[in-house]
Structure formats: structure tokens, C-alpha cells
Design a protein around this nucleic acid. Structure first.
Length: 992
RNA sequence: GCUCAAGUGGCGGAAUUGGUAGACGCGCUGGAUUCAAAAUCCAGUUCUUUCGAGAGUGUGGGUUCGAUUCCCACCUUGAGUACCA
């Protein structure tokens, strides 16, 4: 093998690594541990494109680097294999999702293997594997059997809560749970029936059943997520969607709001990601104020962050769904109010938000009493108030809040001003500065801060309000009406959920004939015939046997996609353990992820839920760390360069056979000209366009005999369509012949190209996706240039965290770098290295490179270290250096980036061991220091001159060298410098 | 609307704490080699220029001996979020 042959080399070493289990991590080692984790992929049917492995390459480089640095590295990979696309495919084809998933995983594995990742595949996880989801079900049971003790700020076993109830009832205990649990004494608890007790406990559990409002599509008989709804109808099919209450499993993530927020300051995650989690949790400090309702015993609780504006309240607005609405609405208003509520219910939450401009509401006819002035205040309902934020009720202060202001203006409600010297005739005054309050009784003359303090103490003194921290984050719905997810280990006795004992897990997914919801709207598992729990035999049995004495119905929902991904990082530590989700020893050894690399799109999904589960597992003593990932990097997206051409068509409003219209395709240049056909168009262009239009008209008329069609600006329609980028060359020219063959739709298409005969496509940078026909398959790149080139190039494209477009043309640079590297070790195609002592210059190149590469890897600037390698190889080539003492350490530096070529050359150097086990070379500054006499000094104005150095010396040493330098002396001409500014390693300024 | 990030050659992008702006690669130009091509190697490549030099990191100010970097205002683009009381 004389020439650099990436195909042979890469195949050879991938087999070697696999056979020797080179990257197998041990759970006990004297080396320090390091855990590098990738976000595991969902194995989709279309396979990987070059955008996917970007983060994997970065983490692989870091993992390999850490091995060189003497760490015991855990670098695993797996698959998040439950999910919707496989289920959708099953609905369409009847193929079982497990089959589709298995096939997709095989494709993924093949693709990943080609890129030379140093994964420990013996630790692979698949969330859809019963051996794995056994433990997902187990975690669910632990959550069910836990409650959140607010006094201790941690989760505890439910048995502890039961013993508290037995001793003292629920009046003293503080738990994170709904406030609507009625208080009871210990005696009362003891007198409750079993069902009543279960009902009460359910309100405390961290996994609990509750009535939740969902987007229900009656036609599809399923619940839709917010992003599956467009303009109030289902994205698929455009069916009506209504908001409906359903009993569903939820996770009490709200209990952890504060801890999830506080934890952010302890972890090294990207700031934008932390910001978006903090924003999602949405902590806001405010006050709850009670407003009595006139002529009855009821009161309204409102949440406000502006208690200082209490004297500006001119009405109260409730969410239409607020429970008091039905109770307080007066007869005369009843009909109107009910109509309004109905109208709101049919609109999804997203709709309400998008319709922000419209003011709507209805007066209930009832009045509240102001807690300080005792004045009567109108109570309205309005859909700008959301039920699930705060208390679902606001005290409306039109002078200080724009929405209240708009509402008041629209319904002609009074707008009293309470801010000194402000104009509120056009809009509300929303600033919280030093403006003094007026018309505010005991708050008069105070500014925002002081008024808030004063009013809170006054509210608390009168027992009409208290300080309260509100969080926007809600409990997370945990039920999905789907088939391809983890089944719940739950059966029902008298309507109350019962956990199946841990020792009978996993509860495997039952077989079903159809993956759609049942006729009567039950989830797909309702189609299963064998889906009942026999409490005698502790097995799943046929539904016929349900007798509600021994055999009971099973839960029909499945868990959501985020269940399996919320704890997988712990499973990698001890993946084959059938007795525990991971052994204590393995958890204590690996503890937490040291570096987590993945996309930021999961900021408020997976990355929040997984932190929640980890904190829960930590509370219950199952894991040793309460944050599972110390450091995280979000890799940017690699974008594709889509190509467009234009279809031109004619809207004709007379008798006309559209089907016989030829497909007329125009190049981007022509399309541009046609679009510019306006009055200002240049004469020359106008003639050209007219010519094209006439040609088109002729063409159309010919195909539609007897018709008379005239194409012009008014009738012309130009639509861009994606074309496969493989049909467009680097000069953006379309290969018209291949395009005709590519799809039967365009077989007879007519092309209108530019005058010189070329047919140019328009390029646009877009997200890489199959539907945009702009994907680049990494397999093709590996075949043509090799995995090492792909790895280097993906890193070279730009900063890891930034989005950047892919451009295959650029890969030749890194490819020729690898060839040059190869040639350093060869003389006339024969492997040859010399054992002679390196020169100072050669050492300088090496140590410069060591320093830079180490700094780059530690700061995740992988792009610049590729440049550094190129410079090093160019310099060594120029020096004709083939010395072992230089090339060996250089190979180690390069091996995390381009492992295959490094291994090959390493073995040619005569080593039997893998280069991955070699220690990273140490940097030696000595060779960077050179004689300052050789450096140019440039006089820069009257005041100063600069001296160029490239040293790694202390400031003091540099100062000494500079000041004694001959040229410095000559330049100074005896003057004494006022100031010497020294920047280590680079430039010296002497201010004269 | 709000929050955050970013604006540097034809292109992707370098530039440490404020210290030679444009590293490295692509592309382009010229040359060597070759019957020719590919491959490889060498030289050049921010703009303007009267070849002296001058201008230049989105725009306008400011701080500094010195600003791509720090401060203020504005413009543009991207991302996230949104009746949050």
C-alpha cells in the first residue's frame, strides 16, 4: 500500500477496533473517569445525512483526546427508538413498528460505523427494548410511590406521607400538590374508605391521574399536540379540534420548579439554553389578593406582580373557564356569558394567542369589593386571561397595563390614573421607575419599590393577601393515545390505578391488529385482546377474563417519547443489569456525564424532563448526582444548499384543458426577468419577455387546438420547485437530460433556458432534509474521500456551535492535507522515516502545534486546530522533515480527528498497540523562544514602536530582551521610554 | 412586542486579555510538470491607487498611544419566546 488509500485503511482499522474492543470502557479502573455522551438519535427511515454526525464527531474527538490524556472514558451510543414515525408507518402499511425500527437501527449502525466513532457498542441501549423499558416502567412506579415534601424540599416515599396522615392528618404537612385537597384530621383519615384514601393520595403523588385539558380531534379520535394543530384544525386532514377535559397521567414537575431553576447556576451549559429553561419555568414574584364578591360568601383570588397599582383597579377579569363564573353570573347576563364561554372553548389556546388583536369579553353582572376602598368593581370574563396561569383571574388596572387598557377602552370601562404627571389618553403607563403614585390613599407619593413593600404588609395585616412566587411551568402530561411507546405497569380496580409489582416487569406491549384508536375512541391498546391483569397469577391475560375481582383491565395509554430519554444516561453505566436500573457501584463510579453534546432544540423538552427525573432519582437515593450533565455543548446545524427551478404556468379563465398543458420550466435567470416585467422594465428586457410570452402562448395554443391563450404578466404564474441537488453542478447549472429521467412528471417538460443555452438553478441555504432534496449522504463522502476527510471537514466548516452551510467542494482541502500527511512518511511511495535528531525549527513546528491543538480541544475550537495541522504539515514538508521524533507525536495530535490514517501510520512505525492508548505529547516552550535580534522593529509614529516576537516568556523576561536589543536601542536613540506595554507571546509596545 | 446571538475579502471563516486585520481552506489568476488531462508543486489574490501611498471589520459617535475586540445609539440577519397579569 504505497499511495494513501482511505478505503482500505478505514475498513482495516474499523474491523480492528471492533475485533479488539478497543473502546470498551471498564467500570473499574485506576485512571480517572470521563463520561462523554451524545444525544442518542431517533432512527428514522431516511437514514443519516451529513448534518447529523457533526456533534458525534466533536464528542468523538473529545473522547479520543481524553483517552490520550489518561482517562478511563465512557463513550456510549444508543437509540431513542419509540416514536411516532414508526407508528405512522405501521398505520399505513400494517408493518409492526418493531420491524421498521429494527431495520432503521441497522441502517444507522452501518452509517455510524463507517465514520470511525470510538463508541463502546457493548453498552448500546434501545428505549423500545423490553429489557430497557422495564426500568422506565420501574421509574414510573417510583414516581407514583413518591410525594414531594416542601419542608425538606425533596421527594419522599408515599408511606411516609401515610404515616403522617395517620398521626396528624394533612393540616400541618406541606406538600407540593394541588391546593384543593380538603383538610382532614388523623381520625378522619382513619375513617376514610380505601377508595377515598387512594383518591387523596393520588393528589400527592409525583405521577398522578388528573383531569387535563387537551386538544381533542373527534374525527381522528385522538389527542393532538399543540404543534399538530394549524389554524384550529388538525394539521393532517384539516379536521375540527376542540378543547376537552380528559383523565390522564401527569408528572408533578412543578414541584421541582425552584430546584430546576437553581440547578442551572451549578451546571456549565450554554447560556441561551439556560435562558430558555429559566424562561420556560417562568418564575415571577408577586402577590395573591382576595377580592370579596358582593352579596355572597365567595371570594376571587388574583395573582399580580404589581400590587402597587391596587388603587388603579377598575374591574376584575376572570378566565372564561374559571370555576366561579357559573356561580356568580347574574341571570340577565347568563345567556351571553354562556355563549361566550362556548365560543372560547372551540378555539385552541394557540388560536387565542394568534388572535391577539381582537378584544373580547363579557360582563358577568357580578361585583367584587375592593379590599381597601370597599368600592364595587365589575367582574368580567375575557379570553385574554388564561386559566392555567396564576389564579386564572386578574385585577385589571387599565392605567398600568396595556391589555387591561385595551379591554377597558373597548368596553367603555373607566380608566382612573394613579401615576403622577403621566399621560394615559393614548396608552397605559407600564414603567416601574420612580414615578410617584397618586389617588392611591396610603400609597400616595410613593414610588414602585416602596409602594410594593407597603401594600404587601398592609394586605397581610388585613388578611386579604400574601406574597407568592408563581411559576409558569405546568405539570407535564404523561399519557399518549398511541401504540408505539412504553405501556404503563398499571391496572384499575374500581377505577383506581394500581401498580403492578416491580418483580413482574417488564410489562410488554401487547399485540394489536390495528394501530389506530378504537371505534369508540379508546387508545390503540384498546384493540388488544390480551390486555388484562390477573392478580392471582400476576400475568397478562385475555380481556374476556376480566371479572373485576381477580382480573382487572389494564391502562390503555402509553408513555410519551420523553420517558425513555429522561434517564438513559444512567443506564449506559451498567447496561446489562437485570436486577437494578444500574448498580450502585457503577453509578458511584461514573456518577454523571462530564460532557454532553447535542442540539438545543430539546431545551424545554428532553433537557428539562431529564433534569427533573434525575433530581427525583437523587432525592430517593437511587443516583449520586442531582444534575446529570456537568457540561453541555449545543452543536449548530449543518444546512443544505437547496436548488430551485421555476415552473411557469398560465391561469386562463376560459374553456381550457389544463391536463394537456406542457410543463414549462424556466431557469432562475429567466424567472427573474419574467418577474421584473413591470412598467419600469428596460426596453431591451421588455422585448425579450414579450418574446418568451409569445412563445409560451403559441405553445399552449398548439396543445389546446382552437383556444386562444395569451400569456402576459396578468396570467402568468411562476412557482419555484426544489430539484435534487445531485442534478445541479457546481456552477448551478441543471443537467436537463438527467432531470427529465429523474421523474416521469417532467419527461416531456419544456425548458426555457438562458440565451447562452445554460439552465441555471437558484441556490438557497435551507435546513437539510429529504423533502427539500438537498441532503448529502455521509456514506458517499466516506466512499469518495474517506471518514477521516469527513471528520476533518465537518470540524473545519466553522465553529461547532454555529449553523453553517455544507459545501462539498471544500472537502478537497482536507483530503489533500491527509495525502500530504501520508507523504511525510513516504519517500517515492516507500515508507521511510529517519531516526536522526530533529532541528530546532522542526521542534518549533511540533511544539507550536501541540500547544495550539491542546488549547483548541479544551475550548472546543475544533475548526482552528484543523488549520493548525495543515500549517504544521506544510512546514514539515517544506523542511523535508521525515524524522520519527517529530512525526510520532504529530500523529498522536491528529489521531482524535483522523483516527484511521493515524492508526495506519502508527502501525507502520512498528507499534503493535493502538494509537488510542498512547499518551498525548507534552508541550515544551523551549523551542518557541528565539533570538530577538532577528525580529523586525517597525517605528510607528512619534510615540511608539512595536517589536514583533513570538515568545512564551514572562513579561519581565521580554522587557529585558526588548530593552537590551540592539535595534531597540537604535530606535530609542537614548530616549527613555515612558511606558512599556507587553503582551505575552506576541507584541511589545514601547511608548516613548 | 420581549429575550438572546451574530454582522470581517468572491465564499466558509481566523485574530488569546484591546496590540502587524483577513490565519487556514475553497474559488480565482499565472507558472512548473505532462503529448494531453488528472494529480502534484510554486507564486499571487481586501479595495483604491498617479505605485508615493491611502481607505478598510454593518452605520454613526465615544474611551484609548492603539478598537474586529470595550461603551452608547441605530440598521440588518438569525434563533427562541409570547395576551404570563
Amino acid at each position: 500500500m504505497a499511495k494513501y488509500n482511505h478505503r482500505e485503511i478505514e475498513k482495516k482499522w474499523q474491523e480492528f477496533w471492533s475485533k479488539n474492543e478497543t473502546f470498551k470502557a471498564s467500570n473499574n479502573s485506576k485512571k480517572p473517569k470521563y463520561y462523554v455522551l451524545d444525544m442518542f438519535p431517533y432512527p428514522s427511515g431516511s437514514g443519516l445525512h451529513v448534518g447529523h454526525p457533526l456533534g458525534y464527531i466533536a464528542s468523538d474527538i473529545y473522547a479520543r483526546y481524553k483517552r490520550h490524556k489518561g482517562f478511563n472514558v465512557l463513550h456510549p451510543q444508543g437509540y431513542d427508538s419509540f416514536g411516532l414515525p414508526a407508528e405512522q408507518y405501521a398505520i399505513e402499511t400494517g408493518q409492526h413498528p418493531s420491524m421498521t425500527t429494527k431495520e432503521n437501527i441497522e441502517t444507522y449502525r452501518k452509517q455510524l460505523d463507517k465514520m470511525g466513532f470510538s463508541y463502546d457498542w457493548s453498552r448500546e441501549v434501545r428505549t423500545s427494548n423490553p429489557k430497557y423499558y422495564k426500568w422506565t416502567q420501574w421509574v414510573f412506579i417510583q414516581l407514583f410511590n413518591s410525594w414531594y415534601n416542601k419542608n425538606l424540599e425533596k421527594a419522599e416515599d408515599i408511606s411516609r406521607l401515610i404515616s403522617i396522615f395517620e398521626k396528624e392528618g394533612n393540616t400541618i404537612v406541606r406538600a407540593a400538590s394541588d391546593d384543593d385537597v380538603m383538610p382532614f384530621t388523623s381520625d378522619a383519615w382513619k375513617s376514610f374508605s380505601s377508595i377515598k384514601r387512594q383518591e387523596i393520595l393520588l393528589k400527592y403523588r409525583l405521577a398522578f391521574l388528573s383531569e387535563t385539558e387537551v386538544n381533542w380531534c373527534p374525527y381522528l379520535k385522538t389527542v393532538l399536540a399543540n404543534d399538530e394543530i394549524v389554524n384550529g384544525v388538525s394539521e393532517r386532514g384539516g379536521h375540527r379540534v376542540v378543547r376537552k377535559k380528559m383523565t390522564q397521567w401527569s408528572m408533578r414537575i412543578s414541584a421541582y420548579s425552584q430546584r430546576l431553576l437553581d440547578g442551572l447556576s451549578t451546571i456549565d451549559w450554554p447560556q441561551p439554553l439556560k435562558d430558555s429553561q429559566a424562561n420556560w419555568i417562568g418564575r415571577s414574584q408577586g402577590v395573591i389578593i382576595y377580592f370579596k364578591i358582593a352579596n355572597c360568601n365567595l371570594k376571587i383570588e388574583v395573582f399580580t406582580t404589581r400590587p402597587d397599582t391596587i388603587f388603579g383597579v377598575s374591574f376584575i377579569t376572570l378566565a372564561p373557564e374559571h370555576e366561579l363564573v357559573g356561580k356568580i353570573t347574574v341571570k340577565a347576563q347568563k345567556e351571553k356569558v354562556e355563549r361566550y364561554i362556548e365560543a372560547t372553548a372551540s378555539r385552541s389556546e394557540r388560536d387565542r394567542i394568534s388572535d391577539i388583536e381582537r378584544v373580547s369579553g363579557e360582563f358577568t353582572g357580578a361585583y367584587a369589593i375592593h379590599p381597601f376602598t370597599d368600592k364595587k368593581i365589575q367582574i368580567w370574563i375575557g379570553d385574554y386571561v388564561l386559566l392555567n396561569y396564576g389564579k386564572g383571574a386578574v385585577m385589571s388596572v387599565p392605567c398600568g397595563d396595556q391589555r387591561d387598557y385595551d379591554f377597558a377602552k373597548y368596553f367603555n370601562i373607566s380608566i382612573p390614573n394613579i401615576f403622577e404627571n403621566t399621560d394615559i389618553s393614548e396608552k397605559a403607563f407600564v414603567e416601574k421607575g420612580e414615578t410617584k403614585l397618586i389617588n392611591s390613599s396610603f400609597l400616595n407619593g410613593m414610588s414602585y419599590k416602596k409602594a410594593v413593600k407597603t401594600v404587601i404588609s398592609e394586605l397581610e395585616k388585613r388578611c386579604v393577601g400574601y406574597e407568592k412566587i408563581n411559576y409558569r411551568m405546568h405539570d407535564a402530561v404523561f399519557s399518549r393515545q398511541r401504540y408505539w411507546g412504553e405501556p404503563f405497569p398499571v391496572y384499575y380496580v374500581n377505577g383506581m390505578p394500581q401498580m403492578i409489582d416491580e418483580k413482574h416487569l417488564p410489562i410488554k406491549l401487547p399485540k394489536v391488529e390495528k394501530y389506530l384508536p378504537t371505534e369508540d375512541g379508546k387508545p390503540p391498546l384498546g384493540n388488544a385482546e390480551i390486555w388484562a391483569w390477573d392478580t392471582k397469577t400476576n400475568t397478562i391475560v385475555s380481556n374476556d377474563k376480566i371479572d373485576n375481582k381477580v382480573v382487572f383491565p389494564m391502562e390503555l395509554n402509553t408513555m410519551p417519547g420523553w420517558a425513555g430519554s429522561s434517564w438513559y444516561f444512567n443506564r449506559y453505566m451498567d447496561v446489562n443489569n437485570d436486577n437494578e436500573f444500574a448498580s450502585k457501584e457503577s453509578l458511584d463510579y461514573w456518577k454523571e456525564v462530564d460532557l454532553y453534546i447535542g442540539g438545543s432544540e430539546h431545551a424545554t423538552g428532553h433537557l428539562l424532563y431529564s433534569r427533573f427525573w434525575q433530581k427525583f432519582l437523587y432525592d430517593r437515593g437511587f443516583v449520586p448526582a442531582d444534575e446529570y450533565a456537568k457540561k453541555m455543548i449545543n452543536q449548530g446545524m449543518i444546512l443544505g444548499r437547496s436548488a430551485f427551478i421555476y415552473v411557469i404556468s398560465c391561469k386562463a379563465d376560459f374553456n381550457f384543458n389544463y391536463n394537456s398543458l406542457p410543463t414549462v420550466l424556466v431557469s432562475s435567470e429567466v424567472a427573474k426577468e419574467l418577474k421584473q416585467n413591470s412598467l419600469e422594465t428596460k426596453e431591451e428586457l421588455k422585448i425579450k419577455i414579450e418574446k418568451i410570452d409569445a412563445e409560451l402562448s403559441n405553445l399552449y395554443c398548439e396543445r389546446n387546438k382552437g383556444s386562444d391563450i395569451k400569456v402576459s404578466l396578468d396570467t402568468r404564474v411562476i412557482l419555484p420547485i426544489h430539484v435534487d441537488i445531485s442534478l445541479v453542478n457546481t456552477s448551478d447549472e441543471l443537467d436537463m437530460e438527467s432531470f427529465k429521467n429523474w421523474s416521469s412528471e417532467f419527461k416531456d417538460a419544456i425548458f426555457i433556458s438562458e440565451e447562452n443555452g445554460t439552465f441555471k438553478a437558484k441556490r438557497e441555504v435551507e435546513k437539510m432534509s429529504k423533502s427539500k432534496l438537498n441532503v448529502i449522504n455521509p456514506d458517499d463522502i466516506c466512499e469518495e474521500y474517506g471518514a477521516d476527510s469527513l471528520r476533518l471537514f465537518e470540524m473545519f466548516l466553522g465553529p461547532l456551535e454555529q449553523s453553517k452551510p455544507w459545501n462539498t467542494a471544500g472537502i478537497s482541502g482536507v483530503y489533500s492535507f491527509l495525502k500530504k500527511l501520508w507523504r511525510l512518511f513516504h519517500s517515492r511511495d516507500v515508507f521511510e522515516v529517519s531516526d536522526s535528531t530533529p532541528t530546532k525549527g522542526e521542534r518549533k513546528t511540533l511544539h507550536k502545534t501541540i500547544k495550539k491543538v491542546e488549547e483548541d480541544i479544551e475550548s472546543f475550537s475544533f475548526n482552528t486546530s484543523v488549520s493548525t495541522f495543515m500549517i504544521a504539515v506544510n512546514e514539515l514538508t517544506a523542511l523535508k522533515c521525515n524524522k520519527r521524533a517529530i512525526l510520532e507525536p504529530l500523529l498522536v495530535l491528529i489521531s482524535p480527528y483522523a483516527p484511521h490514517i493515524a492508526e495506519e501510520l502508527w502501525s507502520k512505525l512498528g507499534y503493535k498497540t493502538s494509537i488510542s492508548t498512547v499518551t498525548f505529547p507534552k508541550f515544551d516552550a523551549k523551542y518557541l523562544v528565539e533570538n530577538t535580534k532577528n525580529y523586525p522593529i517597525s517605528f510607528n509614529g512619534k510615540m511608539r514602536f512595536t517589536l514583533n516576537l513570538s515568545l512564551d516568556l514572562s513579561k519581565h523576561e521580554i522587557e529585558k530582551i526588548v530593552m537590551t536589543n540592539e535595534k531597540t536601542q537604535a530606535q530609542l536613540k537614548g530616549r527613555i521610554p515612558k511606558k512599556v506595554i507587553i503582551v505575552p507571546g506576541k507584541i511589545v509596545n514601547i511608548v516613548g
